[in-house]
Amino acid sequence: MTATALPKRRARMTPRARTSLLIGYLLLVLLALVYIYPFLISVAGSFKTDADATQNPLSLVPQIWTAAAYERLFTTVPLLQWTANSAIITVIVTVCRVFFDSLAGYALSRLQFRGRGIVFAGLIAVMAVPNVVLLIPRFLILKELGLYNTFGGMILPLIIDAGGIFIMKQFFESVPASIEEAARIDGAGVFRTYWSVVLPMARPALITLFILSFQGSWNEFSHFVISRQSADLNTLTTGVASLTSGELGSGNQYPLQLAAAVLMSIPVAVLFFIFQRRIMNTTSGAEKG
């Protein structure tokens, strides 16, 4: 079947196929516009005056260019502090997740120890718990431990996630154990083998985990709603949320809100464009590693 199908690929398109392709293009371009335009008007809107943004919401060109919204964000609004908080949390959570998730994933995949099956079963059960159900429980334990309204309370519950451990375990199952066995027979200890032989091999999975953790903790919102109340601990998500819901007198100041939304999206957008190939070519990317 393949033999007959292959030469056909280069054959001339029938008129019918060509029309369908053209309609397809038209539809896709239109859809792409629907997906992109909101972001374009947000960027444009952030450079408009309040009145302009309300009166000409669709236009991509401000009547008067103004950076007033950005100026306010960096002066009266504590945006820099929110950004610093978000950055600290994201860095710690990402580093911890990549390290601890891969450590546990490696143990569950390669090390023989009694109780491994039970630990893994527990992990699977834990993954089935929806995140939003954990809001009240997490608040309760943070209060109980005296961690409520502290950086510790905002960070610690996020530093290890069952999903990440699972991803790493699956990865290690898919690579042959022969190299590490050799290293260990040569006398390297378990941790040494893991650190200098296994981790470098696991790069593709570690990058996946890195992307997931970075994006997850940078965009995290609900956990920071329930784990803090002090304004000093606002992250970008909770801070911008307070702007959106009209605190700080920002009710109808759309340029201000849009500018904040634009700025907070930049790091994840950069991350996305750096790793675009790996994110987009889902299967082939993982295979090529």
Binding site: P38, G45, T237, L258, M264, S265
Partner: peptide, 19 residues
């Protein structure tokens, strides 16, 4: 184009939708 909205945070995208 189609994937980009999935990357942004719920806070940013909801703010944009309110506008």
């Amino acid at each position: 184009a189609f994937y980009f909205p999935s990357v942004t945070s719920s806070v940013a995208i909801t703010t944009i939708f309110i506008f």
